[in-house]
Design a protein around this nucleic acid. Structure first.
Lengths: 275, 275
DNA sequence: CATATTTTGTTCGTTTTTGTTCTTTTTATC
DNA sequence: GATAAAAAGAACAAAAACGAACAAAATATG
């Protein structure tokens, strides 16, 4: 894979950065093995990158600089179910047809979704998820529209009256939404009233709703109701042991294995180079 | 393969560029072998292409410009004049009276200003500077309102028609603004037309404008004009060797030393724990 | 054809990068 | 706290890449 180009020191450092971006953390030993260089060289690379303000050095490796402040929160939400969320996000993004405008709400799963969507030059992303947008590389291909409003530092997104009003001007075709609670009877729910209100409004203005959620969220009910299950077109998750009842209720449930077994009709071999 | 045409220097250089485009990086030794020319020749080619602004030279080879671009921007803006910017930001924030609503635009200096302002529970911050807001800790004390719009990844802020329209609903008392160019004759200017337009509108809707800028920006004129110097109430900077002419023109110039010598009347021992 | 110009190759001293060895510091574990 | 393991840092040597200068070759120009 890293045939000849990686021998270029500058290129290796760039790849360290992108490795950091995708993995969330890098280790010296791991990078040395990946690039076939000594650990001393990796250390010198990391030191140089830190001096340039591009990462945060730690014992044994490095962390991205962007989230040093919210490290604790990110760590919990981020590492919990990280792999599940990553595969869900990749799948959800691949299900979006070419040229669409997609509305995306706040949350750590949708953050990963945005990361994938942003690489596609054919898409337009509308979101209140500032944390997700702020961490995107300069090389964003998609057009990104930000919904303003009151900033909620706990989730890194915009909420409130202002955000709700802004949604009135929009009528995108589809939405990819995260929800902390998904239940047959209670539908979608959130622990934060303002985010529930905003997500509810998002559902109202689009034609098609994809919900992304790891299986831990299924069956959970949070205090603030977003809306009933009928408004959901598809649920994209990492397992479908719970799916039969949902499918009976008329919701399509998609899991990564399905994609691997049979090519998705929505995306017949589409955009292979984009991911 | 590269039989006849490659013998022409111009063609070889074009092929170097396409090689760079497909591979993501090129090495001197590799190109020398590919074109059967000496490494010295390749080096001269790469130097020429760099002089034309078509690639970025590195040790052992070259990288495409776009990859390096984001790093360069971030690194330079962040580290250049870092100390100066930090002291300017602290001073600018301390000059804001209690209970105000402050409008802040994009930029690396204003990012530091926002960091300071955010610790004060008495303030309300309105900004399009997503990069600044996204890096705030969870413990933000101030209320933060985000101006939405089209996201510009190069500067991590929102711009465009939508952002301009949002400003129409607002009438905050004051603004703290960054500008890449400040000149006696040309006034404030920016290298990005959309950011210039947004900053211009911000100036129009407030009563009082504080401009934060390190001294390197004074005397510089960027291609896109924001507005005349008359619209500026104060310039907060790290040195005032250039200040006399500006003071004659009716602009107050504030530098950190002044704060150290005589306590600011606007902030009589106020909020000592906040900084 | 002769001459000027450009392009290329070679040599050699200098700088950058890398790996190794050894010591010091940090981290984990009891 | 004490101890062992892992990682980091310092210092040195080897290798790779660079740049300057000059000579040779190719190309253009009269």
């Amino acid at each position: 894979m890293d045939s000849s180009n990686t021998r270029l020191p500058a290129h290796r450092r760039q790849r360290i950065l992108s490795e950091l971006d995708s993995k969330g953390a890098v280790r010296v030993e791991e990078l040395g093995r990946l690039f076939s260089v000594s650990e001393m060289t990796v250390r010198r690379d990391l030191d140089a990158l830190e001096a340039e303000g591009l990462l945060e050095r730690t014992h044994g490796g490095a962390l991205p600089l962007r989230h040093v402040h919210r490290e604790r929160v990110f760590r919990e939400k981020d590492h919990e179910q990280r792999e599940a969320k990553e595969s869900i996000a990749l799948l959800a993004a691949s299900l979006i047809p070419e040229g669409e405008t997609v509305l995306v709400n706040s949350g750590s799963t949708t953050r990963l979704v945005i990361r994938h969507l942003a690489r596609r030059p054919d898409l337009r992303i509308i979101t209140n998820n500032m944390a997700a947008v702020a961490e995107l590389p300069e090389t964003v291909a998609a057009e990104v529209l930000l919904i303003g409003g009151r900033y909620r530092p706990e989730s890194g997104c915009a909420v409130g009256e202002w955000a709700l009003r802004l949604l009135e001007d929009l009528a995108p075709a589809r939405a990819i939404l995260g929800a902390d609670g998904i239940s047959l009877k209670a539908g979608l729910s959130s622990p934060v009233p303002e985010e529930a209100a905003l997500t509810r409004r998002m559902i109202e203005i689009v034609n098609s709703v994809d919900v992304v959620a790891d299986s831990a969220k299924v069956g959970r009910v949070c205090p603030f109701r977003i809306g009933p299950l009928e408004s959901v077109s598809r649920i994209i998750s990492d397992s479908d042991t719970w799916a039969p009842e949902f499918r009976e209720a008329g919701v399509t449930v998609v899991v990564p294995e399905e994609l691997a077994l049979s090519p998705s009709p929505q995306n017949p071999g589409g955009m292979p180079g984009s991911f």
